[in-house]
Design a protein around this nucleic acid. Structure first.
Lengths: 303, 303
DNA sequence: GCAAAAGTGTTTCGTTTACACCCATGC
DNA sequence: GCATGGGTGTAAACGAAACACTTTTGC
């Protein structure tokens, strides 16, 4: 069998093939939940094409790594993030999706806690954006985002997904806010609590009465959120255009003060920041045993 | 920006790149349901590597087609099949999964009716195999099959999936047999019937009493099936090795007479072939309107 | 007649849904 | 006190699971 490729050291184009080859990249859609909003991580492109526009972190896949390794490497290089788990979204392979050459991309998605701070070398150009208020995205990345949102809405029925978005300790109303934001519906507070407690996935965080005032202040629930609008391809862009007609506008957040600088240490209690008077919610933590059990059993975990 | 590739017409290796490029293929896992068994379509490889072994239909992705178009083209070329819908399974990208060069593959899966006959030029080398009695597969294709089986078991909860595996008209007990085979469980006949009828997805096929004996004979239910064993990577291969220790053995079917030749016209009533005495089951057909409605609503469709 | 398979109906049980009531907190 | 938010309980409604009875067919 004839060899289909050769390597010519020193040549300007040393990698030579009998048949045309395409390039392969990875892209990561990273979600977090902060300030009562679902947010995604974007980086500003430093080079052509789409220079200056926002895109998902990613890059070319190397020969000595599989797709998952490549996605995690690029993510770490560009944002210093290393999620505990990423899942494959799928391949996006439209013929003209990249003006340079034929490039297909393998998209991944992950959920991280807001306390996972960004601090990479390129961190100046990495920022969290609320999913319903995004700048225009490079390449076909708004299509990728739509796939990620759809996937998230589907996975939430089967996997205890909300916990990856929260800190170590959290209250049930906080968890409920995540489910409501992702699914765009409202649940009965009492039924939600009973259901999640009976599932056995939570354990009390502070059963002993060692409470002090400063700790309690951090545990309030944020104000009720309005359900997230459906994130269709156009509605996302439209929402941005309505809110910020000029691409130069820097106010990507619905609430300006919620816009965080990448370099600032995100508070682990960011999701609880905006308290209102009311009874203090009890704190829980994940029952890891039960969590793993549910993850690989494939049982429903629905609300 | 410097160009990263060049084309040298007439050269032995005309496609030349500044950076190393990998090859991209597509593979299709095609399921059908016949003789009370879930089956997959395999083709025997005519060239190296893995010459003579069985593999999923597929091949190299071309520059002027996206991944879905490429998968459908290869499938048509190799098996003459053109499923109405295929879905992306995911990318398999292990560094050494192909001995020739670095190759990643985009896997797809689809469900077809047993009446969709194979008749391509290479059809001699295409055959249906029961999923629990497979020959050794080339490349990492047993890993791909496992992903497809898992996906099928998951999708069946959300999509009215069984209908793609049946002919135009079918009885409810037939449909039940598919669900039981895929999920590996038994349902109460009466509850299954009530549930599926109340969903509105079926309409009566022969409401008028224009019945003649020859037609009725075709409408019997096959014998009860034993649940499909869990198709873990090893259990599949083991099942084959137990049943056919030598790779040359041709009896891949548990029931020898169920083994069909590719060239023989598969009967549309193959799933009803093995009748037992009993009352004749009523025939139904799909309510297309309701079917489309359920497909894109994402509602559950569970049994 | 008998066994096997299918159609129809009913009873029971558990889960979900929709509330009512009380407690804790900040202003 | 009062508005806001959280914790607990309960009754009604719905759907799922279990099971009885009858009909139709081949042998």
């Amino acid at each position: 069998m004839a060899k289909n490729w050769t390597y010519v050291p020193g040549a300007e184009y040393p990698w030579q093939y009998r048949y045309e080859h395409m390039a392969v990249t990875t892209d990561c859609v990273i979600f977090t939940f902060e300030d009562r909003q679902l947010k995604v991580l974007l980086i500003r492109r430093g080079g052509e094409p789409y220079k200056g526009q926002w895109a998902f972190p990613g890059g070319f896949l190397k020969m000595n790594e599989n797709a998952k390794e490549g996605a995690l490497r690029e993510l770490r290089e560009e944002t210093s993030l290393t999620p505990s788990a990423i899942e494959q979204l799928g391949v996006f392979s439209d013929v003209n999706r990249d003006p340079r050459e034929r490039v297909i991309t393998i998209a991944w998605y992950a959920l991280v806690r807001p306390s996972d701070v960004l601090g990479g070398d390129d961190a100046d150009e990495a920022r969290w954006f609320p999913v319903n208020n995004l700048p225009p995205l490079a390449f076909d990345h708004s299509q990728i985002l739509n796939a990620a949102m759809e996937r998230l809405r589907r996975d939430i029925h089967f996997q205890p997904v909300g916990f990856d978005l929260l800190g170590e300790e959290f209250s049930i109303p906080e968890l409920q806010a995540i489910y409501e934001a992702i699914l765009g519906v409202k649940f009965d507070r009492r039924n939600f609590q009973r259901k999640i407690l009976s599932s056995g996935i939570l354990e009390e965080a502070a059963p002993e009465p060692h409470v002090d005032e400063s700790c309690l202040k951090l545990c309030r629930m944020p104000a009720p959120i309005e359900p997230m609008p459906y994130a269709g391809a156009n509605s996302i862009v439209d929402a941005h255009l309505d809110a910020a007609p000029t691409p130069k506008a820097r106010t990507f957040d619905a609430a300006p003060e919620a816009s965080i600088d990448t370099k600032s240490n995100a508070s682990p209690d960011a999701t609880r920041a905006k308290s209102r008077p009311g009874r203090i919610a009890s704190l829980f933590r994940l029952n890891k045993t039960r969590y793993d059990q549910m993850k690989d059993s494939g049982d429903k975990f629905e609300f």
